[in-house]
Amino acid sequence: MGFVARGIFWCALYTGVILSPLFFLLAGPVPAGSGFLWDLSAACGFIAAAIMATMFALTARFKRPVAPFGIDLVYYFHRLIALVALFFLLAHPLLLLAADPRLLLFVRPRSSPYHLEAGIAAFACFIAVMLTSLWRRRLNIGYDTWRKLHALLSVLAMVLTVVHIQGVGHYVDTAASSLLWSAILSGCLVTILYVRLFKPLRLLARPYRVVSIVGEAGRAWTLTLRPDRHAGVSFLPGQFAWLTLWSSPFSMTEHPFSLSSSAESADIGFTIKELGDFTSGISRVQPGQLAFVDAPYGAFSIDRLPAPGYVFVAGGIGIAPLMSMLRTMADRRDRRPVLLFYAYNTREEMTFREQLEELRGRLDLDIVYVLKRPPNRWQGETGLLREEVFRRHLSEMHDGFEFLVCGPVAMIAAVEQALHRLGVPMRSIHTELFELV
């Protein structure tokens, strides 16, 4: 089965799980209705709860379901579907109050029914999860702290939701509904066990050692790891991995980075720019140090996009996965033509500039550097990756090529639009989101 068919299958299965509580209610024997708004509110509540339950699976990084989409897209979808859940979650109490405003009288601290308090607490937890995710940087919450808070609040929200649903009891006291909710909750529990226990145990049994740490231009570091008494991992050029340093895989301090090394090499390399809490300490890594790698992930790879040639577009450290593809092509003696657009602030900061020049000799590679702040007498492209830049360098020769774009989200959106306006089919433009959270 191809990636498209598999993608449709997993989308259909996911939709089925979310809608399953309503299918059961529509198909099975249920108690008499309580009024349109009241029943609509109950249905909205069930949908919100089902979406919340599926969040655990969406972020569990199950390799098979994630493969057709790429994990970056699954995480992006996770954020979108959370907004859909928020809509149903808000509709649930608002519809109830619209049906009977006197219900507000029941909301009194310490004297409300326990299931009502559980529902309100679940709602508060969910809102807290949303706000701390959407405004993580604005609230100045570190990535590692946020991940722990996110996991804790999510589990708490789900537990409180179950207490609320069971406490209310309406529409879940049939055998079929009880079975369904038991299955959904078991799924959540198994997912949590997989993520927090089985996967860390597996990573612990397959450690890596740091071979070298090399400073690159643009405040970036290339970290090379070697499998420690195991075969390592095989990956497609352009994929990425979750890396744990300085702690065990149980610590929830892993971070996603693109692999920048050749897929043909046994050692694996990450090129990491000093940007945040974790990355600013990367220069302190010592050779011989233990590391754990959860890989490979991502659908951004030439190996998944057979074509007569490629156009790569990189913004800043977005060059890392493209470098992996170029190095892999060089190792494979792949002479298909590649045109690389590489945008950076200054020439001095440009990561991999010398390595790229060296690769020109081993590949059919053309490079267009685009500098925001060019040096004096710079003859090349300047400013941003605009439509005119692409128009000057793309020709009929590039028809049928696949376009791979990696960099900041704003750059990706602008490049996609520019290429599309120049007549590049959207199906030929492939992107990788770097900002997962």
Binding site: G35, A43, T431
Partner: peptide, 30 residues
């Protein structure tokens, strides 16, 4: 393209869920 597709899928799931919820409420209340 991928981001747009993700948005379409999320919106479609929400729309179908809302329609089913309204259908359920309508069926329950004649």
């Amino acid at each position: 393209m991928r981001l747009l597709l993700a948005k379409i899928v999320a919106a479609a799931i929400g729309a179908v869920a809302l329609i089913l919820a309204m259908l359920f409420a309508a069926v329950q209340n004649g």
